[in-house]
Design a protein around this nucleic acid. Structure first.
Lengths: 190, 190
DNA sequence: AAGCATACGGAACATTGTTCCGGATCACCA
DNA sequence: TGGTGATCCGGAACAATGTTCCGTATGCTT
């Protein structure tokens, strides 16, 4: 039981090598040119043909998703730890800071969430599916503790902060941070 | 001095007719399909060829700009009136409501402001250039009156509300309104 | 009515996402 | 080890869309 004992053959090593190269290339290209970068550019950088890219990632969005999934998971999973080590209100604010940071650092993420393209719907769904339980717990705890209003929904808050973190030419991440801080002020119990 | 007395001849009447048809078609198409709608669709609806469209609007963004300019102006110009008839803090909140409404109603506007496309840079610039003085006056007055914090910049606030109004599949304008309301709570003097 | 600048239409080009398939490559079995 | 078939690869080709170009048509002025 050392390896997976599924019935189909093992994935060919060259295929795995290509998948890795593609992920690395995509990560670099997305960071440099945003998630709207041409598929061909990624394929070229990885040294494979576009056919190969599409074999492993049937849609562009699958590639975007694969690149960002790990970071999304890490952020979502950071909630419980913060919750265990801080007071409810503080944990909430700290996590929102972490969340803001994620969206600010991954230039593509905020854009991908708001791009109207239907092909990125899957990423959007994954993102909210993953983040919702985390924020829900933090928000409920803080509200129960009387530190924040109890009439704000998890979804609204996740969405609001994500929107405030959208990169716009001429604005830096500091701007996002200030706006998120303002929103958090509004969240505090009146 | 009844007409413009510029030196070049008057614009041909058929040309003017086409410009009008294009603007009307674009308005309808943008409302129905968003600002990303294909240029050809607009040309077809207006009953002209794409060449004609490009003759009058050298870039897609020029068409977008032309369609939205009037509404932007109306919103920006609404500030002074509100300021004259209400207390500073109230005028500010009322105008932000108007601003939110504009962004919510014109489905394309919020998207256009945040689309990374460089060709829409001109629209973005016009938008902020037009809105800034209005909000600046309202914000200064309210801050001077002690009703809101004085450490929030005009640009941050304009930008924040515009972002919160970005349409996302699965969310309606009510969501935007709730998030803007939360932000305004944060704006109030603590 | 003639002459000409202006304007028109749509074919054609460039870019980009996606599909397809003939041929190369690898994993398993004997 | 060598054969064989499934897996995988590359890139040409297709579709959608922004933009350019130019031969032709049309309205304005004289």
């Amino acid at each position: 039981m050392a390896e997976e004992t599924a019935q189909p053959r093992r994935r060919r090593v060259d295929a795995q090598r290509n998948v890795d190269a593609l992920l690395e290339a995509a990560k670099a290209v997305f960071a440099a040119s945003g998630v709207d970068a041409p598929v061909r550019e990624i394929a070229d950088r990885a040294g494979v043909g576009v056919g190969t890219l599409y074999r492993h990632f049937p849609e562009r969005s699958d590639l975007v998703k694969a690149v960002l999934e790990r970071e999304i998971d890490a952020c979502a999973d950071a909630g419980p730890a913060l919750s265990a080590e801080h007071a409810p209100g503080e944990a909430l604010v700290l996590w929102l800071g972490r969340y803001t940071e994620l969206l600010g650092a991954k230039r593509g993420l905020a854009n991908a969430l708001h791009s109207g393209e239907p092909t990125l719907e899957a990423l959007r769904a994954y993102f909210f599916e993953r983040m919702s339980p985390t924020l829900e717990a933090l928000l409920d705890a803080a509200a129960a503790n009387g530190e924040v209003r109890d009439d704000v929904t998890t979804r609204d808050l996740l969405s609001a902060v994500a929107k405030l973190c959208m990169p716009v030419p001429g604005e830096g991440p500091e701007s996002s941070r200030r706006m998120v801080a303002l929103l958090i002020e509004g969240l505090r119990r009146t």
